[in-house]
Simulated scan of single mutants.
Amino acid sequence: MELKTHNRYAYTPLRGRADYTWPAGRRLAVYFALNLEHFSYGEGLGAELAPGGPHPDILNYAWRDYGNRVGAWYMLDAFDGLRLPMAALVNSAMYDYAPELVAACRARGDEIVGHGRTNAERQGVLDEPGERALIVEATTRLAEAEGRPPEGWLGPWISHSHVTPDLLAEAGYRYLLDWCMDDQPIWFRCRNDRRILAVPYPQEVNDIPQIVGRKIGGDAFADIIVDHFDEMMELSRERPLVMGVALHAYLVGQPHRLRHLKRALRHIARHRDSIWLTTPGAIARHCASLPQGIVP
């Protein structure tokens, strides 16, 4: 029986892959991704604090809005205090709704990553012209605001069509974050002899699946970050690895969870001299600089 496949990459077991290092001979690359998202009022998608009621769904809209108005600013203070870099995954609608928040990330020197127009929609349900238009619109807005186009993309709601990698490569993107199938970057084949790099993005060390999906507390989520980091430090002695931490300010920007997140951040920061604290864009650029065939 022959199963359908995506034809983007071949199965390559972790054991036996070519070895390489990150800059300064480091073996573990760690990045933090803060999702900056805006949602439509009275309609559309969004994580739910409580089961959604009839629209306008005031409770859930206001809960998510807390992240942009308050929680993200608490988090920026925490990252500033520990001198930690970050990638801001930005809905282009944020430039209209909360431009000060994106500007604060820009002022920190954070990488600005494309994250669609809004998380009130999924791109994967669109036809190819519609999806291309979404990517172009979001990319153009980020490029105008930041002075250069973004290098990377995370689809809103990790939504993909069968041609998403092709459209992103054709739009000039170097990497995507949507696939969680590996702890090392992997090259994707794209049409017209193009390619795009899949940089690991977590669905375990990610506050939405853990806190909203599995209903764990902030203390347990911080323990996951610490345990994942400690184990990956050991595992990276054998091979280069990437650890991403995915965060949303309406979740871990809540003070009772922020206290535990800061504990996990301090734990990682204490190891800054042994790891590469970086951004996904820097990871992608480093992989592109390696000889052909080193990165699967």
Rank of each mutant, 00 (worst) to 15 (best):
133 A>M: 07
164 T>D: 07
150 P>L: 06
150 P>H: 06
169 A>C: 04
123 Q>W: 14
155 G>P: 09
134 L>M: 13
149 P>E: 11
139 T>P: 01
177 L>H: 05
140 T>N: 12
152 G>Y: 05
159 S>L: 07
162 H>D: 15
134 L>N: 10
172 G>E: 05
174 R>C: 06
126 L>E: 03
129 P>L: 03
140 T>D: 13
125 V>S: 13
141 R>D: 00
129 P>I: 01
178 D>R: 07
150 P>M: 08
136 V>Q: 13
154 L>F: 10
169 A>V: 03
151 E>P: 03
119 N>Y: 15
178 D>E: 10
149 P>A: 15
174 R>T: 07
123 Q>I: 15
174 R>D: 14
176 L>T: 05
155 G>W: 07
147 G>Y: 11
166 D>Y: 02
167 L>C: 03
157 W>E: 11
125 V>T: 14
118 T>M: 07
127 D>Q: 02
123 Q>G: 15
161 S>C: 09
133 A>F: 00
176 L>A: 08
154 L>M: 12
172 G>D: 08
148 R>D: 11
148 R>H: 15
132 R>G: 01
147 G>L: 10
151 E>S: 14
118 T>Y: 02
134 L>F: 12
159 S>P: 03
127 D>V: 04
176 L>G: 08
169 A>Y: 03
132 R>Q: 13
151 E>C: 12
156 P>C: 10
145 A>Y: 01
153 W>N: 04
132 R>N: 06
128 E>V: 15
153 W>V: 04
175 Y>D: 05
144 E>D: 15
171 A>G: 13
136 V>N: 05
145 A>L: 01
140 T>W: 00
160 H>S: 12
162 H>L: 14
142 L>K: 00
166 D>S: 00
139 T>R: 15
173 Y>R: 03
172 G>P: 04
152 G>L: 04
172 G>R: 06
147 G>D: 11
125 V>H: 11
126 L>D: 01
168 L>I: 07
120 A>Q: 06
159 S>A: 12
129 P>K: 05
